[in-house]
Design a protein around this nucleic acid. Sequence first.
DNA 1: AAGACGAAAGTGGTTGA
DNA 2: TCAACAACTTTCGTCTT
Length: 306
Amino acid sequence: MSSKSTKGRKCPVCGKRTVFYDKGSREYICKSCGTVISEDTIDFGKEWREFGDSSGTSRRRTGAPIESSRHDLGVSTKIGRASDYKNIQKGTRRIYSRIIKWQNRTSSATERNLKQALSELKRVCSFLDIPKTIQEEASKIYRMAAEKQLVRGRSMESVVAGALYAASRNYGLPRTLNEIAQAFPLEKKEIGKTYRFISRQLGLRIIPTLPMDYVHRFASELKLSPETTAKAVEIIKKAQNKEVTSGKGPMGIAAAAIYVATLLTGEKKTQREVADVAGVTEVTIRNRYKELITKLNLEKQIKSSE
DNA sequence: AAGACGAAAGTGGTTGA
DNA sequence: TCAACAACTTTCGTCTT
């Protein structure tokens, strides 16, 4: 029962956070009401998947920008099939066939792994609504990790997840480990482990995340008003000045600040609701929130707004 | 009945000898 | 490499609305 501790994504039908990715069917399924959220409804991207496509529908492109999220950076050249060379001498045609064979062979080993990883990354990014820039960054990180042989001994998924986590943090829009774990058949701690490993090996600079990075995303998930959101930001700024935040988990602080803000503006949210979107427990919110109101002298304000 | 509160025990990561 | 440590989680009982 390893799925007990990690909450799934919110189900659009029944509203419970019990939607998980089913590796076998490659679909998202709500374990509570059984709703199947098919991949096609989320991912409108093109395929570009088969290298040696024999159906005669192979796509061409010209002058496209280089994209890390494509396994060949979008610029590789593919030698056509032998039948494309009908008007070439017989002897020469055989040579072409051999060249084609070799091209497919040399690219297959690492390329195939990379292709698989990048399509996995794309799937996850569309599921989690992650912007293209971060997806690109994650692709670069995965590519670097693959070149340094860091994938060895680890599952491909965990490295993809770790790269994505690192990329989102570097862009100042960190996803929580919980959120990322929802999209993979992986435990949160394994993603964290892989993340630390690859970022150390690749020498990525690890900036500790700040509560501010999370506030807007959490607030919008809770559908808070702009006033309440602004209040939460204000609380965090004050807290940082008074050094209430040092050494504490940034997500806990962000969650507590949001909770306090809802009390002040009367926009009721339960501790449970805030805890859910922030990926911390109610207990953590309580502890942070107690510190916040005593250190920032907010008791009176809260009482008067009740 | 639901939400808030707090105590106590356990977990995983960091740090420093 | 190991032990101490802080932050956080889980669990569970109690209080409040």
